[in-house]
Computed example of a mutant assay.
Amino acid sequence: MTGTTTEPLTAADRCDRCGAQAYVRVVLPVGELLFCAHHAREHAPKFEAVATHVHDETQRLLEEHGAGAGAAR
């Protein structure tokens, strides 16, 4: 992989942890991982230490689904 991927995430992009729609792309030195908002929050302390770039579109949850979409469960 070369450079930083800036393409918007689509409904076809799925979380590598659970298969839900991905809203975060984590670019690593040897590839990338996609996460739903829940798993991005859960794993952020780990991936932020090694990521070369984090493309976060979680604000789309509020735009698309309203204020309750980002609430912790």
Rank of each mutant, 00 (worst) to 15 (best):
Q59N: 04
A72H: 09
A12C: 13
H65T: 02
F47E: 05
E48K: 13
T4F: 15
V50Q: 07
T6E: 06
D16H: 06
A12I: 08
C18N: 09
T10I: 11
H55M: 05
P8G: 04
R14H: 02
R25M: 13
P29Y: 13
G31M: 09
R17Q: 05
L9F: 07
A11Y: 11
E7L: 03
A20N: 12
R14N: 02
D16S: 05
E32N: 11
D16P: 00
H43R: 10
A37R: 01
L9K: 09
E64Y: 02
A71F: 08
A69S: 06
Q59S: 07
M1G: 09
A69K: 10
T4A: 14
C36S: 06
P29E: 07
H53N: 06
G3H: 00
E7N: 15
V27G: 15
T2G: 15
E32M: 03
E7C: 02
C18E: 06
H43K: 12
T58V: 02
G66M: 05
D13N: 07
R73E: 12
E64N: 08
A22I: 01
A71C: 03
V30H: 10
A12F: 01
T58C: 11
A11F: 03
C36V: 05
A71Y: 11
T5D: 09
A40W: 00
G3N: 00
C18W: 14
E7W: 07
E32C: 13
Q59D: 07
A22Q: 01
E64M: 10
A71Q: 08
T2W: 09
A20L: 08
G70N: 08
A20V: 01
A22N: 02
E7P: 01
D56E: 05
D13W: 00
R41Q: 12
A51M: 10
E32F: 15
V30K: 10
P45F: 07
V27N: 07
V30G: 15
L34K: 01
R41N: 02
P45E: 08
L9Y: 11
H38T: 11
G3F: 01
P8D: 08
V24Y: 01
P8E: 09
F47I: 03
V24M: 04
L33H: 07
R60M: 14
C18I: 08
E63L: 03
T10D: 05
E7K: 12
H65L: 11
R73K: 10
A44K: 08
L61I: 06
L62M: 12
T4K: 06
T4Q: 05
H65F: 03
E7V: 09
Y23I: 04
R73S: 09
Y23A: 02
E64A: 13
M1R: 12
P8K: 07
E48D: 13
L33R: 05
A71K: 13
E32T: 10
Y23L: 10
A20T: 01
T2R: 15
T58E: 15
T5P: 02
A69I: 15
L61D: 11
D56Y: 06
A22S: 03
T2Y: 08
D13S: 08
Q59W: 07
D13K: 00
H39Y: 00
V24D: 01
L9R: 07
F35G: 00
T52H: 11
E63R: 09
C15D: 00
